[in-house]
Nucleic acid binder design. Sequence first.
DNA 1: CTAACCAAACTGACCGGTCAGTTCAAATAA
DNA 2: TTATTTGAACTGACCGGTCAGTTTGGTTAG
Lengths: 214, 214
Amino acid sequence: MTTEPQAGAKALRPARTNATRQKLFDASMELIGERGAANVTVDEIAAAAGVSKGTVYYNFGSKSELIAQLLRHGVDILKARLLDAADGRDGRDPLLAMEAMIGQAMDFMAEYPSFARLWVSENWRIPSEWQGTFSVLRGELLEVIAQAVESVAAAYPVDDSVSRGSLETAIFGACFVVGLDRQTYNPERTRDQSVAAIMAIMRGYVLKEAAPRG
Amino acid sequence: MTTEPQAGAKALRPARTNATRQKLFDASMELIGERGAANVTVDEIAAAAGVSKGTVYYNFGSKSELIAQLLRHGVDILKARLLDAADGRDGRDPLLAMEAMIGQAMDFMAEYPSFARLWVSENWRIPSEWQGTFSVLRGELLEVIAQAVESVAAAYPVDDSVSRGSLETAIFGACFVVGLDRQTYNPERTRDQSVAAIMAIMRGYVLKEAAPRG
DNA sequence: CTAACCAAACTGACCGGTCAGTTCAAATAA
DNA sequence: TTATTTGAACTGACCGGTCAGTTTGGTTAG
């Protein structure tokens, strides 16, 4: 195996390395998102990143590990945005916070469509090479959604016959699919239309138009 | 290229051929759904079907064409079920018909999880080998959903600010994702929970609890 | 009845090419 | 000095597609 840089010492790593890793993330996100992990070669990724093949193995050790870290990278970005959207509305109407989060999700899908494609392509495989990675990352994202749903349920009367978990999954899934479909098949649809369609789930969950904190 | 059987003469083809094609559909649906189209070899498919590799090429001409016909095959089954669920409730409450359809979709996902995985894995790739196939099949399925939504909109007051297309896409996507998630991560969730979560979209779309044909 | 015949269906060894992963000496930054 | 990158060569496994030959089931001729 090639000599890897100290894996845990991200902070100590020189800027050059981080720049290289970023270039590799960008290049592989694009290629893998479009054509699928199995249909992209390491040589292609290296070339697209303007880097040699050896550098890929020096930095990541394997193609599989590169992809695992790519997934983690993308989720970190998405999570940060969702939390930011929620925090920005702290103390306000939880339904508006939810709407802001879904809007952020749509923006993310528009900005990183390849990440979304990679996610849906590999997420439900069994057993996947990245099963553990997906399990953890999926949990983190659902946690963010769960918090937002919880806030809504605390402020509004909701339909308790609907299972929280299933509801969160439906929102999660609808975000990915609506976002991806807009990219692929219906570019004419607006961000707001997409958000409104997904928000229908929440309007169906909340029982009546009671005022928040009612 | 190997000599293919007359493509249009399905009726004339001996039973042996149709049996072979069915075995190949079953085997490849399973393998490709689990591991992805690119990670399954034609040899494996042939072996799993209890048939030689040459037979695959005799019947389908290429791996790509096998998968295209596999997609068509699965959609035919799903469409038939959805239409059946809708027809079975003809003249009744369109919301109940919708609920029946979503229930059928859940059943389908449970029975053919591999098809659902194949679909989400390859659907949003650009450009995909099966782009044309997906475009057509996606349109057919959305058409069925659109009809059901139309019936609801005709019988109930609905939120016209929500774009029909986006709504249908959200339902479509939620069905796949909720169904797959149940298979992969949450087998303890019941069919009814899943249906209820997806139906929240419709309850959010309908304005009040007006009686049908109001 | 049955032997000869035929085309469709099927077989599986084989070929040409591809790719992930490895290695390493030389170059280049910090 | 030391960490990082380069570039090119190499390997060994794997895979899609091909093709010459075999089996099967039915039809026809004698």
